[in-house]
Structure formats: structure tokens, C-alpha cells
Computed example of a mutant assay.
Amino acid sequence: MILVIGATGVVGRHVTAQLLEAGEDVRALVRDREAALSPQVKVVQGDLGDRESLAAALSGVEKVFLLTTGGPETPLHDANLATTAADAGVKHIVKLSIIGAEYGFSDLVSTWHLAGERTLRQVAARPGGPAWTFLRPGEFMSNVRLWANQIKTQGKVFWASTEPAVAVVDPRDVAAMAVTVLTTPGHEGKTYRFGGPEALTVAERVGKIAAALGRDIELVEVPIPALLGAVKKAGRQPLVVETTLGNLGREEFRIQAKKVLPVFAEVVGRPPHTFDEWLAAHLDIFR
């Protein structure tokens, strides 16, 4: 049995679907029992802040995919999961971390994930503790969804930190990494920093969307604080977006974010999806 935490999110939905395709027995921890998931997924209600509900969700589970929200509660939630999983006899936890954890960056989000990683390492060191694997992707291709309403209503994209090129990654590929690590041997105690197959600036991504739609889209650069109201309205954590965009103003982050790495192909056995492929599958959200 594999427990998926974060099963209703952008990556988690792909993880559950791909695990089912692989013939795995899947359980999902959700806050809302009415969450729209495949009927093949065994749904349990609970919260990472509630160890009692975690204990129930982890009963009989061998492996866990851990996706926390990336907010300030991340270290506590990761600690709750790790310690409860150890008590339940879980064998392996795969944590979705972040690029900044790979390079030891000191921004808020990287620090939160690093604290969670350290807890998993510490718990794994106990006799019989669960093994860990950390996945450290870069920016998701799907973040351009935040531009959809602007494109549809104004024919414009208002964004900040538009100059740096980033090797954006398809959430389907993040899930494929997780599923490979969960279902094949030899990944315990390893970290995987990976991204997409090409580094693209914001202008290049906007240009690809415009070409696919067959109309012009104007890119307007604005200060980061000007975006936060719309980000919150879209259901994203403003502090996380503010931190991520702020990182792109740091030279050491830019250097790492644009790297095209062979890791995904080495682990999964196929090339990662391109931005054009992601866009073709999601173009309707911009129409």
C-alpha cells in the first residue's frame, strides 16, 4: 500500500493516476472526503497537523509520497509524518522538496523544506526508521496557469522577474520521478535534482502561448508586490510566490535554475516533456 499525501494537487493527482496505472494499491490522505479522485483510490480523511489522523491513514502502509504545501508549517508537517510513519512501520518516504534545498539557499521556502528533509534523515537513522528519497525539481510549467485570466481578458501577461531563463518541468514528469522511485528499487537515501529539457524565459513562454493561440500577447513587467493580490485570488500562497520570484533576482539561483540536467532521463528512462507538449495538453485554459 502506498499513501499519497497531496493527492488533490497539481502533482499529486498525477502521482495517484500513474501509481494506479502501475498496478499499485493507493491510499490518499485528504482534508475533504468528497475530493474528486479515482474510485480506485482509497480515501482517508485527515491532516498533517493531526498525528491521530495520520496514524490511522498510515496503518498498513509500506511507502509514502509526501507533498506538503511549502508554507511555514512544512517543517512541523514533515516531522509529524516522519515520526508517525516510523511508529507505523513505514519502509520508505519520498518527499517532494525544492531546487533551493539542493543548493542550500537561505530563502524562506528552501529553509522550510530543508528543515523537513533534516527531520526525515534524523528519523531514518533510528533503528527500523523509514528510508527517504528527496525530489528537488525546479519551477513547474503549470505555473503559467496564473497568467490565464490575464490572457483571456486583456491579452496581456503581468509578471515579475521576467529575464531569467528557467528549465521548467512538467508536473507529469515530477510525478513520473516519484512513481519510479516508489516502485523500483535502489533509490533509498538519494536526492534527485531535476528539471525540464530546455531553459525558457518568461517572454519565451509567453511567446509560445501566443503562437499556439494565434494572437499577440503583451508581456508587462511589474514589481513583485503588484502580483500578490492576484496570486492569492488564484489560490496560491503569496509568500511562496514572492519568495520564488525574488530568488530569480539572485545570480546564484539563476545559474542553477537554468541548468538542463540528465537526471530525469537517467531515472525514468525517457526524455522529459517539453513546454510545447505541456501547452498542447492545456491550451484551452488560455482561450
Rank of each mutant, 00 (worst) to 15 (best):
3 L>P: 11
3 L>F: 04
4 V>N: 09
9 G>I: 13
11 V>T: 14
15 V>Q: 03
27 R>D: 12
29 L>N: 10
29 L>G: 11
33 R>A: 12
48 L>Y: 05
51 R>C: 10
56 A>E: 14
67 L>C: 14
67 L>S: 13
75 P>C: 13
75 P>M: 14
85 A>W: 10
87 D>I: 00
96 L>E: 02
103 Y>W: 12
107 D>R: 00
110 S>P: 01
115 A>V: 00
118 R>G: 04
119 T>W: 02
122 Q>V: 06
125 A>Q: 13
138 G>C: 06
140 F>H: 07
151 I>C: 13
153 T>C: 02
156 K>G: 03
163 E>Q: 12
165 A>G: 06
178 A>S: 09
196 G>N: 09
197 P>S: 10
197 P>W: 05
200 L>K: 05
200 L>Y: 07
203 A>D: 10
207 G>L: 12
213 L>Q: 08
218 E>H: 06
221 E>T: 12
224 I>N: 04
225 P>G: 04
232 K>S: 12
234 A>E: 15
234 A>T: 03
237 Q>Y: 05
237 Q>E: 14
238 P>T: 13
244 T>L: 14
250 R>H: 13
251 E>I: 00
252 E>A: 04
252 E>M: 02
259 K>D: 08
262 P>T: 08
266 E>V: 01
272 P>H: 10
272 P>F: 07
272 P>C: 11
277 E>S: 05
286 F>C: 06
